[in-house]
């Protein structure tokens, strides 16, 4: 399968992002570079100084809503992308509605309780929709502990253990690895829908 064929398939696909911080911003940019056609971006937060250590934003974007900053960055890479922005704090009733037409949902929020809310809402209302979640990426090193756990349509990327704390902050490299694992799983799932399996 050529790169052109891959991009052609992915240009017809839509991905939802529940959260546009460290995980969401990096996975969205990788998917933009892969040629995804439609993005649904949901987040309530604005770009702040502290985000530059690990999120895919720039100083010129400080103070912007993350959904708008990420939209601009995606369009810089893929000007043909269709992007729908939702300035919301996600609640169970929103989740299904916002991402109803997405082929895959990337769960990329930073609070465990909210992660569960999103996963539960989609398992309840759309159990057939793949959800790719990022869980356990605080700290640094220990790359071999990062993996993908799958059960039915849920994919959990990360080590499932490393919880952010004062002693174990989030660092750009480990967050970026997990974000790209999420993007990689999403691409695999969307290509598989069209009959293209992974190379392994």
């Amino acid at each position: 399968m050529s790169e052109e064929e891959i991009r052609s398939v992915l240009s017809q696909k839509a991905v939802g992002f529940a959260g546009c911080g460290g995980l969401g911003s990096h996975s969205a940019m990788s998917l933009a570079r892969a040629g995804i056609g439609t993005f649904f971006l949901a987040d309530f937060d604005v770009v702040q100084e502290e985000d530059f250590s690990r999120q895919c934003f720039f100083r010129s974007q400080e103070g912007m809503l993350k959904i708008h900053a990420l939209r601009d960055n995606i369009l810089d890479v893929n000007p043909d992308a269709k992007i729908y922005c939702f300035d919301v704090r996600l609640c169970p009733s929103d989740v299904y509605e916002l991402f109803q037409t997405a082929d895959v949902v990337i769960e990329a929020v930073d609070v465990a309780k909210t992660k569960l809310t999103i996963i539960e809402a989609l398992q309840k209302h759309a159990p057939e929709k793949p959800v790719v979640s990022g869980v356990g990426m605080a700290g640094w090193g220990n790359t071999e502990a990062l993996k993908v756990n799958q059960m039915n349509t849920l994919y959990l990327c990360g080590d499932l253990i490393s919880k952010v704390s004062d002693d174990m902050p989030l660092t750009a490299a480990r967050v970026g690895i997990v974000a790209n694992m999420q993007a990689n799983v999403a691409i695999e799932l969307m290509l598989k829908e069209n009959g293209y399996g992974s190379l392994h």
Binding site: V111, M137, M151
Partner: peptide, 10 residues
């Protein structure tokens, strides 16, 4: 049983 813990961070 499959039990997957969810922790803060993202």
């Amino acid at each position: 049983l499959k039990i997957y813990p969810l922790v803060d961070g993202g």
